[in-house]
Nucleic acid binder design. Structure first.
Lengths: 82, 82, 82, 82
DNA sequence: CTGCCATTTTACCGGC
DNA sequence: GCCGGTAAAATGGCAG
């Protein structure tokens, strides 16, 4: 007997699909919240484009720090092992 | 008095920036959860590409239905007013 | 010999650039035509916003149908091969 | 008598909608052609991002020239009238 | 002139 | 590990 439509696999697939749809909905909700914050900031007189630039810069700095830390751990482990 | 750096506006900006960063972090977390679900489904034997196709179709159909409803409301209001 | 500006590559690039510029001009022309039709419809007494809503819905429905067909083909091929 | 559905207005609306859909289809076709040219250029070894930059620059220059010409005509007409 | 919508650009993710 | 395609973000343009 081949794969049954509506069988166990179907149930599992449905479950996966629905879990993803729920998570996607949550993600969309947060994206909406972010838009709201930008809108609020704009209404307060801030320049959205500039804010985005600040956020991008902070992210790059954070990524750079994380990378440094990562390298430091890597070396530390290497020395510990070696 | 000129604009003070570090003044009230600076505090507000900081607050907006941090709120967005928190929300972005949440969003990234959910994106990670979604990836995990795909990975789990794949490990269970499902085809990720096909799952994405299913999700895409379901979304398109839902969006079309929402749009129909939206238009129906639009016309109803137009007729109600007219 | 280094890269020559004005050499063969330069000619090719010029050709690509000009082809794109011609196509962009055509595209802009059609966009203008579309705007003219909207203007004409508006002058005839139709509501442009409603027209846009109709067009959007028709497009969404068409896209959903195309996607269904696409998925149907996908499965058919999968079953045919399998 | 009120507006008849399926009447003359309906026919006109249908006509407008279909004209726009045809034009949109043409526009999409040209957009596809443009993508093809970019793809061809890329396959030939050109950098698409750089090409876009060139096109943007040329457009800005063209717009500037058009603006100058526009101003020149404006002044000429003003003098002619004055 | 402001908000909305299309288009463009960027980033991500799976496949090879 | 890279590339190609696909989805999200961001910018620019247009109607109102």
């Amino acid at each position: 007997m081949g794969t049954e439509y509506g069988g166990i696999a179907g149930e599992q697939l449905k479950s996966f699909i629905e879990r993803i749809e729920r998570l996607e909905a949550e993600k969309a909700g947060i994206a909406a919240d972010i838009r709201d914050v930008y809108a609020e900031a704009k209404a307060t007189g801030f320049d959205v484009k500039a804010m985005r630039a600040v956020l991008k810069l902070r992210k790059m700095e954070k990524d750079a720090r994380d990378e440094q830390e990562h390298m430091r751990d890597l070396y530390k482990n290497t020395l510990g092992i070696g």
